[in-house]
Amino acid sequence: MTTTASPAPSNRGARPGTRAHRDRSPDAPARRRRRPLDWSLAGRVAVLVVAAALTLGPVLWTLSTSLRPPADSLRLPPSFLPLNPDVTSYAQVFKQVDMALLVLNSALVTGLIAVGQMVSAALAGYAFAFLRFRGKGALFSLVLATMMVPVQVTIVPVFMLIRGMGLSDTLLALILPAIPTAFGTFLMRQYFLGLPAELAEAAAIDGASPFRIFRSVYAPLAMPGLAIVGILAFNFHWNEFFRPLILTISEQNFTLPLGLVSLQGNMGTGSISVVLAGVVLSMIPALVVFLVGQRTLRDGLTAGAGK
């Protein structure tokens, strides 16, 4: 990868990088004609294609194996493209586990966490950005500091608390502890600080109460920030495994990842296409988020690194 030398220094117009490339598009075809094949570009693309194949291959195999008849699912050579789709496994997975209940549990838990995080982060972020109270700086540092503590370290006391509250083995045990969000609060504070403060003054002159100003003026303007909080919460908690493994006991409270892992355990190496059908179904919502909000998700995930 290091031998992908860019054009020689004398070739000043063709520096790497999109802008230069795009700006010079008029003479690009001419250059291409002079040099029939750009070997450095071809070599780089070849490496990238192999990397992309290794990244997407396992997912394609999962999809096409889930669409093979269960009896064929172990047969080699493997299939990477679902050329003769067969949906037997999808019917089977609903018989093997209560797929509908798993989806419902996951949707409830994830949805309520996402909404709860959006509301609480918007309120707290707004207070940290605009409202006046004693100890603001110290409290904000404390909120940020909680981001450093991994859930695995606090899980034992959280488990005890949930038991003490009489919530063990309920969906609320998964939802309530996940609602306060340090990262979401941080993100929303930054977002509100980017909005003009004059709006609040104008609204206050018109007699709006502080809550009214938040709800009718700032919250609507902060929707893009809220979308990031919501999408991140969805992506994280839809896929979450560790907390559900500990905080739920009976199968009726399992979420999708937990249900699928236990399905794999029960099936052994039997008809793997049935398990994979479940895996594919569980990926659909994440895939929709990926297609619709990839940019939001990317920005949100990397936002933490910028501070």
Partner: peptide, 27 residues
């Protein structure tokens, strides 16, 4: 527009109470 102090704590309550109970106390 900047509200009273009590108002600020109402805004903060869900996050601060939740973090207190489910993060700080457990730590």
């Amino acid at each position: 527009a900047r509200g009273s102090r009590a108002m600020a704590w109402l805004f903060l309550a869900p996050t601060i109470v939740g973090m207190g109970v489910f993060t700080l106390v457990p730590i």
